[in-house]
């Protein structure tokens, strides 16, 4: 998913274009850019700023405010460990601990081969299956530390 600087500029311009005269477009644009590129490269933010005539400072303000946006490249698969109440009382901290060790990364870190990014998340809303992790869009529930290996192995 590595794009050249020109490609990044061109793609971001295309994403931002339809919103030029509209309102409320910044967040959907950032979401679309991140969807395509995996993160928000500085060149993309510059392009959006020029297209929408919004100062870069404001765009960075929005991009850093929301947990969903990332300014650094991320892994091909995002592993989210639910740290909600129900998962907490059923041992989600151990899952996090084990994953950190398996992937040799810290929270919010990305593995060197860009395969995984490990993130805590406030609540995935699958409390009935606690403890839960989500890999990309798949939810895995009723986990224990020793089941994690099988789950992770499914994502290349």
């Amino acid at each position: 998913m590595a794009f050249s600087v020109d490609e990044i500029r061109e793609r971001s311009r295309k994403i931002a274009e339809p919103w030029r005269n509209g309102k409320g477009g910044l967040i959907p644009i950032l979401q679309a850019v991140q969807e395509q590129m995996g993160y928000l490269p500085p060149e993309a933010l510059e392009t959006i700023s020029r297209e929408l005539k919004i100062p870069s400072s404001e765009i960075y303000g929005v991009a850093t405010f929301y947990a969903q946006f990332h300014l650094k490249p991320r892994g091909r698969h995002i592993v989210r460990v639910c740290r909600g109440t129900a998962c907490h009382v059923r041992g989600s901290l151990q899952l996090m601990q084990k994953l950190k060790e398996m992937l040799s990364v810290e929270e919010n870190g990305t593995t060197e081969d860009l395969r995984f990014t490990l993130e805590p998340v406030a609540c995935l809303g699958a409390c009935g299956l606690a403890p839960v992790i989500m890999v990309d869009d798949d939810t895995h529930g009723r986990l224990t530390a020793d089941k994690l290996g099988d789950v992770i192995a499914r994502y290349e």
Partner: peptide, 26 residues
């Protein structure tokens, strides 16, 4: 349908509206 971007405070009504407008959800 507007998709949120991961900020709990956006559940507060005025913050939610700021977020729909494309700003920081404060």
């Amino acid at each position: 349908v507007k998709e949120g971007a991961g900020a709990f405070v956006c559940g507060e009504e005025t913050a939610l509206m700021a977020s729909i407008e494309g700003e920081r959800g404060m």
